[in-house]
Design a protein around this nucleic acid. Structure first.
Lengths: 335, 335
DNA sequence: CATCTCGCTGAAACCGGTTTCATGTAACCG
DNA sequence: CGGTTACATGAAACCGGTTTCAGCGAGATG
């Protein structure tokens, strides 16, 4: 590996000048600069990232805190992949790499909190997986640029990005209303998760706005998974007044609901219309296609990247970013 | 941030001794060691990763080359997430972090090939996305520990991990045979992809082993996507002799096949049995459930981690690892 | 002509670890 | 008791960049 001193000697200049060529090109004489660049190209010089980080305390790396512990709920939501790709792409475009941090509680000394300091990470993005790990808060308080997905978090240089869960839920309910449904139930996400409570709130608000009364027995809590959707839908079908539509706070649960409805010998959308949330791949593949509230997954990743980079560059924490959702109408809600 | 010299002064020892406490504990006196550890704990000392990397040329980081360019085929296979998680988990357990590398061709100077050198990455894992980028080969030749997924690759310290695509395909065909099917067609993956050709070979081999003749019009090439599956199945249904079973080389295509079959007014599995490959989440969610050849996704990630770490630790390139597949029988193939 | 400014460059310290080599001490051996 | 050995430690060089500060020459100014 060529070093800066070798390159400097080769060009007959000092290491300082070479360094300036790469970091502050405008202060160095154009001829010198070109010559250094040409020589660098020729010998394949690459500035050593560790040395640079050591000197500047900036690593050009952003950490991703992503709890993939299989015992936790939420680790495998299928759209994480798309968010991750959006995040990676947007960060790459801004010159940052993404470092996946382990979250193992067996070895706290290898915790991501420490990794952030050891590696001089410039910022952190956290994917909420329902994990109540206090280290997350600790990280947020630590003053590092920090963006959380789907979960409000307090901290000096902290913000979060989320979809408009309330608005999306209202869209869904309004759509069902416009399709002529008047007895609209919901299968909510687990209480205590941000998206879970917000989507439920949207449901409640929109019912009120439409002048529909809200029946307690028409609200059943699910777990975001298929089996939970099946179970919740079975309960709804046993309600005194059977609903003619159901807004389900997650697509996987919604597919479960479709299944429970079929199992009961009822037809979608004739007997019961179903609208989900998230627009996972599966939504377009089941029959009938699932009407759903689409999250802008790539946009979430990109917004998180933008926010974290802005804070790295010294900006104040931007306000929480709430991305709009889009209703995708498919067969499950339209006669 | 506490440095090693501060900690050393605090304990009345030299920096060298502190360094040994963390890297070579057995050579330092037990009392000294305990005192240093206690003091380190107390002031929250964390060795600086960049300084360490600079001195040792080892970063404890493995790069992941993952081409997520949306214009390429293969960037979004839904089981990458599981492989990624398996990889990350296994690497974390061995003390390595995973660095996601950008693959942008607009800015070759930021290419992953350079990132590997700049960041002193200890090893690289590459996910094959059908990308024929020559840099991959360049990386493999460069002498870095390198593991590729699903694609054979030449290089001094290179190996690869893949599922037993031939064997899995044979399992699938044999299963169909055992279900009484005698006219077994296939929808293959794109020629030129490793899994595509291997699964086709398995199909051919097993037909021969079973003494079934192979009809050219019963082999149709797909693209691993749903729409390709639909199109391929339609062609199969127009064949002079309609098959009574189809082995489809990918689950997403298989779901497309299910759809084309339904569209033709035929029943699965009564008229045509279908077996897929991969066992993506969707396979368990469609109705009827899709019989499929399951890949051990977490195992693939773990095997890749193991191989790359072994090579990092100086081992010769281990032989390619071919992980067994499991036939998961669901409704699409069983009366 | 002396002085000031401006543009450009170099010397050297510094970032925070690791590692080699030398050294001091205590134990062991004949 | 002299010599060898093992063990534990420290001094200092080194990894490869960045950055401060000072210096130099050329052109501008008084």
């Amino acid at each position: 590996m060529a070093t800066i001193r070798e390159l400097a000697r080769l060009c007959g200049v000092s290491p300082a000048t070479v360094s300036r060529v790469f970091n502050n090109p405008e202060v160095v004489n154009a001829r010198t600069r070109d010559e250094v660049l040409r020589a660098a190209q020729q010998i394949g010089y690459q500035p050593n990232a560790s040395a640079r980080t050591l000197a500047t305390k900036k690593s050009s790396m952003v950490g991703l805190v992503w709890d993939t512990d299989h015992r936790r709920p939420g680790w495998r939501h299928p759209y994480f992949q798309e968010i991750l790709i959006g995040l990676k792409t947007a960060l790459s475009g801004r010159g940052y790499h993404l470092l996946l941090l382990a979250t193992s509680e067996e070895k706290p000394e290898e915790s991501y909190v420490h990794a952030v300091r050891r590696h001089n990470l410039d910022g952190v993005v956290m994917i909420d997986s329902g994990n109540r790990d206090p280290s997350l808060g600790y990280l947020a308080e630590s003053g590092i640029a920090c963006v959380s997905l789907d979960r409000p978090l307090e901290g000096p240089r902290t913000t979060y990005v989320t979809s408009d869960n309330v608005g999306g839920a209202r869209q869904a309910v309004r759509h069902l209303y416009e399709q002529g449904r008047r007895s609209i139930a919901t299968i909510s996400g687990p209480a205590g998760t941000g998206p879970g409570t917000d989507r439920l709130r949207g449901y409640v608000e929109e019912l009120a706005a439409l002048g529909l009364s809200q029946r307690p027995e028409h609200v059943v809590e699910g777990d975001f998974y298929l089996s939970g959707g099946v179970a919740a839908m079975r309960r709804l079908l046993r309600a005194p007044e059977q609903p003619d539509a159901v807004f389900v706070a997650g697509d996987e649960m919604a597919v479960g609901a479709l299944r429970a409805i079929a199992e009961a010998g009822l037809k979608v959308p004739e007997d019961i219309a179903v609208v989900g949330f998230d627009d996972i791949e599966l939504a377009g593949l089941v029959i009938p296609g699932l009407t759903t509230v689409a999250q802008d997954k790539a946009g979430i990743g990109a917004a998180a990247a933008e926010a974290v980079v802005a804070m790295i560059n010294g900006a104040d924490a931007p306000p929480p970013q709430v991305l709009p959702t889009t209703l995708v109408v498919r067969g499950s809600s339209r006669l």
